[in-house]
Design a protein around this nucleic acid. Sequence first.
DNA 1: CGATCCGTTGATACCTTTCAAAGACAGTGG
DNA 2: CCACTGTCTTTGAAAGGTATCAACGGATCG
Lengths: 227, 227
Amino acid sequence: MECERLTLYPPKALLMQEGSPAHHVFLIAAGTVSLSTLLPDGRRQVFGFARKGDFLGVVAEDRYACTAYAVDRVSAFRMDRIQMRETIACSPQLLAALQEITSCELAMARRHIVLLGRRSAVEKVAGFILEHQDHASDDAPAHRVDLPMTRLDIADYLGLTLETVCRTLTALARAGIIVVIPGGVRILDHAGMAEAAAGEDTPALEHARLCPSGARRIAAEGHAHGG
Amino acid sequence: MECERLTLYPPKALLMQEGSPAHHVFLIAAGTVSLSTLLPDGRRQVFGFARKGDFLGVVAEDRYACTAYAVDRVSAFRMDRIQMRETIACSPQLLAALQEITSCELAMARRHIVLLGRRSAVEKVAGFILEHQDHASDDAPAHRVDLPMTRLDIADYLGLTLETVCRTLTALARAGIIVVIPGGVRILDHAGMAEAAAGEDTPALEHARLCPSGARRIAAEGHAHGG
DNA sequence: CGATCCGTTGATACCTTTCAAAGACAGTGG
DNA sequence: CCACTGTCTTTGAAAGGTATCAACGGATCG
């Protein structure tokens, strides 16, 4: 049994496979991991992104509940799950810690539920960026947000298509709220971001619609009907 | 301090208010309770429905995380939260039970996330009915599903509007899969339900579209173009 | 330098929402 | 007993937001 062994995973490497025997528990030391599930017809839902300090696979069942892929270069401590759970079961303090972690994950899941159930594409994308600004690497400027995952990962997290994520980022950029940079975005207008995430009518956004016809309507305003 | 006191709540009674001090923990003895949150602009998201045997308000924070309304006549044991948590903290066995419950709630929340993020209206409504068929009152026929909550409650759980829930139920009924009855539905075609919930193209459903124009197109097929 | 993956943009389709009105039903009071 | 009232439900018509299909640009890699 390999215990507390630091392992390196390249981008797209598989750490856990939904439904397969849960041999290991992971503690992320560096990098980002996506947690997702796949529907029979190929549709995918991403539950979240794990980062430094997050535990993966600490489940009571003998099979993983979701799939974990490395988003970028990931290093993680890999431990034996049975042994880990026995250790936890013997220590009320560790058990309380696990309860605290699970409780926190439940709270995150509920925020995710609100995001998916009751928010528009703009609110979802803006909210996603704000969720990740705290996680930004410490040495980067405060207003830079790292997004190492692909547009498809973001879309599958937000319940959108990757095209809609693209368009929404472009719309936020056209509104002067963010700038899209390689590997992330830079926030120019924090108040505008907060408004966009809350669903308030941002003046700059209401004319920069996702649908190209929105832009066309603006161009046509001067000389023809907006049909 | 009232402890282990059985309390009765009429429909729409408030058990817990999001953000207010979490004085009590509830154990539902009978009836159904909705758990929800409200966005500043009035949009609502329902997280789930608690039933007999479910615990409410066992939170570590001193304020409730969501709002709980009685859906129908509810009776619940109301206990002091601080006292309850002290009792749990002193008993590794109870702590393990709480961990088990929280872990189960997290799994439910993730199924909810998939429902909200990656399923159509028909799949959502069909999935909702299937979720609740296990909860059906024991004395009712096996294929009858009780839905004591309103269409708005269902819509706010599924991330839809109440009109869409209505139309979808009607579509399932027109397809001969269910019958809508007061206080619930009756499942006629379990295979059809499973297909509808999985997103497979049910022959009976593809012609019974939600949009009225779909029905009109069928009517118009014989003598005019389908516009 | 072609292949592949990722990201962006365009045009159109369609599912769900929105706005609106009427039906069904229980509770209340005359 | 029955009209009245409010809530819940159902249905219709039109609008709109997002998905789908498609093409292209740019970066990376072999």
